[in-house]
């Protein structure tokens, strides 16, 4: 009987055949466009013309993004809005998903399955539908949110119509839609902690908040780290509520990068400038994710 390796080698031709469709598609539609984005970021190029019509301008696009003009101001505001939106979203999603996850995993009463299904179902709903429904919930006069706030004596909020509250209102909508997904990941992480760990901790007299801080959270560390990174990447993609409800306003307060880059690079056809924005976003993302991992490692060693 031939060795295992020899039997595998006979199928070598299949390696290429099986990989070609997926790796080929990813190469053409992901890797090549990344390269093109970087290349275009160094050029002046109208999106409506062939790539060959691009004119090299070195780092001119990036200089414009850093300069004092309206292009730079709008871009930096969008970059700031995006990271504020992501930061607030993570700050809300992380503790909420942990609380829901612990509740669903630890509480032995009937109906926690219903909560989990309800939570996850919001993640399955098209974001454009969520945006539309929430715009009506936020409606200052006919919306139920201000009515409910009125019952408990809180004054009316302007929600989407004021630059002070619009971005935070979009964060709230995002948290509602996404918290269930992260809850499921927390529950999955919790089920992987063996019961023996809890039994040992109980023998040592650890319970309540002490148990959470000393046992559960450290063992959930990888789950929580993963959740932060995914929540960040999801938050950067926010588009529908901005496109459908605020168009980046009022006064640029909800202008976020996915919306802004599309507006500049495709609607205004400034493909080179838009690509420079995309490259800056990618670099910022790499820096932030590296920082998250570095902070995590530091905390682990301490």
């Amino acid at each position: 009987m031939p060795s295992r390796q020899a039997r595998l080698d006979r199928h070598r031709g299949w390696t290429a055949a099986f990989l070609l469709p997926s790796v080929g598609l990813l190469a053409v539609f992901v890797v090549v466009p990344i390269g093109l984005t970087i290349w275009l970021s160094l050029h002046t190029w109208s999106t409506q013309t062939p790539f060959s019509s691009a004119v090299y301008r070195g780092l001119g696009n990036f200089r414009e993004l850093l300069a004092d003009g309206p292009v730079g101001r709008d871009f930096r505001q969008a970059l700031r809005n995006t990271f504020v939106y992501a930061g607030l979203s993570i700050a809300a999603i992380l503790p909420l998903s942990l609380a829901f996850g612990l509740f669903i995993h630890r509480v032995a009463i009937r109906g926690t399955g219903v909560l989990r299904a309800l939570l996850f179902s919001t993640y399955m709903v098209p974001t454009i539908a969520v945006a539309i429904v929430w715009s009506k919930l936020y409606s200052p006069s006919e919306g139920p949110f201000n009515q409910i706030l009125g019952w408990v004596g809180v004054s009316r909020q302007p929600w989407l119509s004021s630059p002070d509250t619009a971005l935070r209102s979009l964060v709230l909508l995002n948290v509602w839609q996404q918290v269930g997904y992260f809850t499921v990941l927390v529950v999955a992480g919790l089920t992987q902690i063996p019961d023996s760990v809890y039994e040992a901790a109980a023998l040592d007299g650890a319970r309540g908040p002490r148990l959470l801080a000393r046992i559960t959270l450290p063992l959930l560390r990888r789950t929580l780290l993963f959740n932060v990174v995914i929540a960040l990447i999801n938050a950067i993609q926010v588009f529908e509520p901005v496109a459908a409800l605020t168009q980046g306003g009022p006064v640029g307060s909800t202008n976020v990068l996915t919306y802004h880059i599309r507006r500049v690079g495709i609607e205004r056809s400034q493909g080179g400038l838009g690509s420079a924005m995309a490259v800056t976003l990618l670099l910022s993302l790499v820096v932030v994710v590296s920082l998250v991992f570095a902070v995590n490692r530091r905390g682990y060693e301490a």
Binding site: V32, P33, Q237
Partner: peptide
């Protein structure tokens, strides 16, 4: 299957999972 560069190729495939779509939208459109 076992073949040379398998792990590197797999890592590269997985890395594309984390790319925000807006980064490649402009050239893809073209």
């Amino acid at each position: 299957y076992r073949f040379r560069g398998r792990n590197a190729l797999f890592a590269a495939v997985v890395a594309t999972m984390f790319l925000p779509p807006i980064v490649t939208l402009i050239p893809l459109y073209r």
